[in-house]
Every structure is written in structure tokens, then in C-alpha cells.
């Protein structure tokens, strides 16, 4: 059965490179957030982006529309992110460094820019601090996927996803409260 959300299957006539470009363009923002939750430095995010693009290029010809395009992209990206983490080990840059750099380059009013980025970065910092199994579920939840879609991406049962999501959200809540308390 072809999933109703599938668009890749309908355009099988177009070259693979064009399909890949369209896919990356359509999911650019969610992918950039996913990369940011797994890789802290810009160089690492770029490496991960290249890994994912290559993996999508390889997997595209085998994609038969048995799930939505979004699920397919996230599944490939998450698998590559896990491999990337296993390969890289420790993160290369801390969130605080990231904020400091923003302050240094934010023009005439660094205080305002800092405050804005600080608010935005708090959630990213909390997500990055979650254990991997929780982070996987949370990033997909935050992208708007429901439990069934998350189960499809991660290869888990819906019940398992529900349990992980519950625990992950509790952990995220605690981290955000700790962050609030420390500022």
C-alpha cells in the first residue's frame, strides 16, 4: 500500500539527484534541528548533514512508499545520527560557547540578541542533555510526529514509544526547571 503522504513514489520519473534535492529542501528545517540535537559544533553538524544526504541518496531507490516521506527521512536521519554518535563519541563544543559566540557577533545590541538566543537555546540545551533513547523520542515529538509515526521511525511498538515519551518528557521538564533555576 502506498502511504497517502508519499510524494517520492509519484515522481519516480525524475532523476535521483533531483528527488534528493527536493527531499532535503522540503525537510531542511526539521533536519537542521535534528542535526543540532545530535551534533554541537557547526563542523559536526555539517559532517552529519553530509552523512544523512549520502544515506538518503543510497536509500531513495529502495523507497517504495510504505510510509510517509517524513517518516522515511527521519528514519534514515536518526539511523545516521546514531552511527555518527557512535563514531564521534564526545561532543566537540559546549552550548555556552555557542551562546558566547552569538553575543560576540550580534551587532549593536548584544544584550537583546543574547536574551533572545538564550531563551531559544535553553530548550536545545535541555534536549541535548537527555539520554539518547529519550532524545530520539523527544526530537520527533517536538517535530510534531505522533506515537505511531515515532514508532515507525525508530522501529519500536507504539506502547514502547508511549512509555519512553512519558519518561522523556518528565526528564525534559526537570532539565528545563533546573535551567530556569540556574538563571
Amino acid at each position: 500500500m502506498t502511504h497517502p503522504g508519499t510524494t517520492l513514489e509519484e515522481k519516480n520519473g525524475e532523476p535521483l539527484e533531483a528527488r534528493l534535492a527536493r527531499l532535503l529542501d522540503a525537510h531542511a528545517a526539521p533536519l537542521s534541528r535534528l542535526f543540532a540535537s545530535y551534533a554541537r559544533s557547526a563542523a559536526d553538524r555539517q559532517d552529519l548533514a553530509q552523512d544523512v544526504a549520502l544515506a538518503l541518496f543510497t536509500a531513495l531507490p529502495r523507497f517504495r512508499g510504505d510510509c510517509s516521506e517524513r517518516t522515511f527521512v527521519f528514519r534514515v536521519a536518526h539511523n545516521r545520527a546514531l552511527a555518527f554518535l557512535a563514531k564521534r563519541g564526545r561532543p566537540t563544543e559546549d552550548v555556552d560557547d555557542h551562546e558566547d559566540r552569538v553575543v560576540a557577533t550580534s551587532g549593536k545590541n548584544p544584550a537583546l540578541a543574547y536574551e533572545r538566543r538564550h531563551r531559544e537555546a535553553r530548550l536545545l540545551a535541555a534536549v541535548r542533555a537527555l539520554p539518547l533513547s529519550h532524545r530520539q523520542v523527544v526530537t520527533l515529538l517536538l517535530e510534531g510526529l505522533d506515537h505511531q509515526e515515532i514508532a515507525d521511525v525508530l522501529g519500536l511498538t507504539v506502547n514502547h514509544v508511549a512509555v519512553r515519551a512519558h519518561r522523556a518528557r518528565a526528564a525534559l521538564r526537570v532539565l528545563l526547571e533546573e535551567h530556569e533555576g540556574s538563571t
Binding site: 528545517a29 531559544e120 517535530e143 510534531g144
Partner: peptide, 10 residues
């Protein structure tokens, strides 16, 4: 959380 998260890479 979603609203906040999705401002990244908008």
C-alpha cells in the same frame, strides 16, 4: 515546547 523548538532553523 513545539512552538519554541520549531523556531530553530525557521
Amino acid at each position: 515546547w513545539r512552538a519554541e523548538w520549531q523556531t530553530f532553523g525557521d
